[in-house]
Design a protein around this nucleic acid. Structure first.
Lengths: 336, 336
DNA sequence: TTGAAAGCGGTACCAG
DNA sequence: CTGGTACCGCTTTCAA
C-alpha cells in the first residue's frame, strides 16, 4: 500500500531504521565503519521506503554532476549520430550521464552552451558550433572541454580526423585515373573539416601538377543543397570532370543532379564524397572513411581524464582515415 | 584580474552588491518587487563576479531538473538517431536539457534507467529497452514516461508509427506484382515494431488469399545479420520469391546476400525494407517510410505537458506511414 | 522594497 | 561504530 507520491528522503530512512542520516549515508555508500546489523536495518528501511538518494542533493554535496555533455551542430546527418554514439558508449561505461545539445539553426547557441556548462563536469564540443570565446568562458569556470573536428583553441585537448593524407590519397587516385578538371563542392567556411579538406585538396592537386580548381561550389551540408549546387556546375559548358565533395551528403546530392542531367557517373562525371556514411556504400560513392565512433569514444576518454584531474600536457591528435574506392570515381579492375 | 577558479556564489554577489541573497535571487529572476537602483547594483556585481547560478542549487530549491531523458536501444542505426533528433529539437525549444541513454548490449539497463530517472523530470522510452516493471517503477516515483514504438503499459502516453496499414499496402503492392512465395526476415521477438510488422504482414497475406509464410527468418537488426540470415534462406532450393524485411538494415543485408549469390533484384528475388533510412533510397529499396522526426517531436511535446501537470486522459496515437516503392520490389512503369 | 531564515536532500568531518 | 552538524547554492515564505 505504499502509495508514496514523493520519493522518500534520507531522513525518513533514518527515522525508520532508528539511526542518523549520517549512518544511512555510510551504509549506502559502502563505508566499512558500519556495524553489519545496522547496515541491515538501514537496507531494510531503504527497501520498504523504496528510497533512492536524490541526485541533486548528492551532486550538490559531492560537488560534481557525474554527467557530461556533447555539443554538435546537428544530429540529422549520420555522421554526428555516430560520433555521439561512440561518445555515449564510453561515457556510460565511465559512469557519466550524457547531455546532448544541438546548435544548428537554434537561437543563442552561446547561451545554450553556457547553460549546459552548469549541468556537467565537462563537455565535448564538435565543429564550429560556438565561438572560441564561449569555449574560453566554459574552461574558465573550470569545466574541461575537449574539442572535436575543429581547430585547437586555448589549452583544450583537441581531436581530429585526418584530412590531409586522405585528400592526398584521394587526389592521387583520381589523378591516376587521368582526370584533369577538378571542382570542389562544399563550403569551406561552413565547417573546419570542409575547410581543411578543401585546402588539402588544393595542395594535393598542386603537388600532382594539376591545374588549380576554380573557387569551391559553396553549399550547405545536406543532400538537397548538394544537388542544387552540383546541378548548377554540371550545366555549365566547361563542367568539371571530377566533383570532389566536402561530405557524403552533398556528394549524394551531386549524384542525383548528375542523374537528372542524364550524365552518367563515372563516365561523364566523377563524384567523390567524404565520411563514408552508410548510404555512401549503396550509392557506390568513392569516399574517405572516418573513424566516427572512435572519435567520439576517444573524446569521452580524454574528457573523463581531465575531469578526474589529469593535468598532463595538452593533447592534440589526428586519427587516420581511409580512402574507400567505389564506382563513382571510375572503373576499376577488381570488384566493388 | 578576476582569475576565479571557483564560480561565484549568490552570497558573494550579495556581499559585493551590499544586499541579501534573497534580493539577488529576486533581481535575477525578474521579480517586480526590486527597486530599479538595487537591481542595477546587483547586475553589476553579477557581471563583475561572472556569476552564474548553480544549476544544482537552483534545481534543488525549485524541485525540478528542467531536464528530461530519452532511452533507446542503440544510436547506430539511422532510425533512432532521427527520432532522438526530433526529440531534442522540441525539448530544447521547450527549455529542457536532454539526457540520452542507450541500453543495447549494456549491463543492467534497469539500473541505468532508474538512475536516469533521478536526473530528469520525465522521460521517453523507446522500444523494448527495459522491462515493463521498470517503467512502472519510474512512473511510481512521479516521473512521467512517454512510450514510443512499443506497446502501452500502465497509463503512459504511447505513440507508435502505423505498422498495420503499411503492411497491408506493402503486401497489396507485392500481390499486384503477382508474387506468391513470401518470407519474412527479422526477429519478431526482438522488437515490438518487428513483431507488429510480422503479424500485420501475415494478416495481410491471409487477406490477400496468399499462402502463409513459413516461420520468420530471425536475425538481429544490423546489416550483417540480415546478410547472413538472407543468405541462408536464398540458398535453399525453394527460396522465397519475396523477402519482406523487418527493417531497412536487414533488408540492405539481404540485398548484399542476393548479390553474393548472383541473384538479381527484383528479377530473381524481391526484397523490401521498413523505415526508409537514408541508405534505402540509394539502394533502391522499396520500404515503408516512418515519420521519425515527428515521432520524437511529438513524444517530447506530450512529455512536457505531463511534466507541466496535464492530467488529461491517456494518449495513445499511431502516426501514419507511407509505402515507398522503389526498384527492389519489381519493375514499374513510372520512374524511380 | 528588503532581509532573515527555513527548507531542498544529500556528504563528510568531528566528537563521543 | 554512530550521531550531531556544518556545509553545498539556491528559492521562497514571513516579517519588518
Amino acid at each position: 500500500m505504499s502509495n508514496n507520491r514523493q520519493p522518500a528522503t534520507i531522513y525518513q530512512v533514518a527515522a525508520q531504521a532508528g539511526v542518523s542520516i549520517a549512518t544511512v549515508s555510510r551504509a549506502l555508500n559502502g563505508s566499512d565503519t558500519v556495524a553489519e546489523s545496522t547496515r541491515k536495518r538501514v537496507l531494510i528501511a531503504v527497501k520498504e521506503l523504496k528510497f533512492r538518494p536524490s541526485r541533486l542533493g548528492q551532486s550538490l554535496a559531492e560537488g560534481r554532476h557525474a554527467a557530461n555533455g556533447i555539443v554538435f551542430p546537428d544530429l540529422s546527418g549520420p555522421y554526428y549520430a555516430e560520433v555521439v554514439l561512440g561518445y555515449e558508449e564510453v561515457a556510460a561505461e565511465l559512469g557519466s550521464s550524457v547531455l546532448i545539445l544541438s546548435t544548428h539553426g537554434r537561437p543563442d547557441p552561446a547561451g545554450k552552451v553556457m547553460d549546459l556548462a552548469r549541468r556537467v563536469d565537462g563537455m565535448v564540443v564538435i565543429s564550429r558550433t560556438v565561438a572560441d570565446t564561449v569555449i574560453a568562458q566554459v574552461t574558465e569556470i573550470g569545466i574541461p572541454v575537449v574539442l572535436l573536428a575543429r581547430p585547437a583553441v586555448g589549452s583544450c585537448d583537441t581531436l581530429n580526423a585526418d584530412n590531409v593524407d586522405s585528400a592526398h590519397d584521394l587526389v592521387g587516385h583520381l589523378v591516376e585515373h587521368g582526370y584533369e578538371r577538378f571542382g570542389f563542392l562544399g563550403d569551406p567556411a561552413g565547417s573546419p573539416d570542409v575547410h581543411a579538406r578543401y585546402e588539402a585538396f588544393r595542395a594535393a592537386l598542386r603537388a600532382a601538377g594539376r591545374r588549380s580548381p576554380r573557387a569551391p561550389l559553396r553549399c550547405d551540408f545536406d543532400v538537397e543543397s548538394g544537388r542544387r549546387a552540383a546541378a548548377r556546375a554540371l550545366r555549365r559548358p566547361a563542367r568539371p570532370e571530377v566533383l570532389v565533395c566536402g561530405n557524403d551528403e552533398t556528394a549524394l546530392g551531386a549524384l542525383e543532379a548528375a542523374k537528372e542531367l542524364d550524365l552518367s557517373v563515372p563516365e561523364d562525371v566523377v563524384i567523390t564524397g567524404w565520411d563514408d556514411v552508410m548510404a555512401a556504400r549503396y550509392a557506390g560513392l568513392t569516399t574517405v572513411r572516418q573513424p566516427m565512433r572512435e572519435l567520439g569514444a576517444t573524446a569521452a576518454r580524454w574528457l573523463q581524464e581531465r575531469i578526474a584531474g589529469n593535468a598532463g600536457p595538452v593533447r592534440r591528435e589526428t586519427l587516420a582515415t581511409q580512402l574507400i574506392v567505389r564506382s563513382s570515381c571510375g572503373v576499376h579492375d577488381h570488384k566493388t
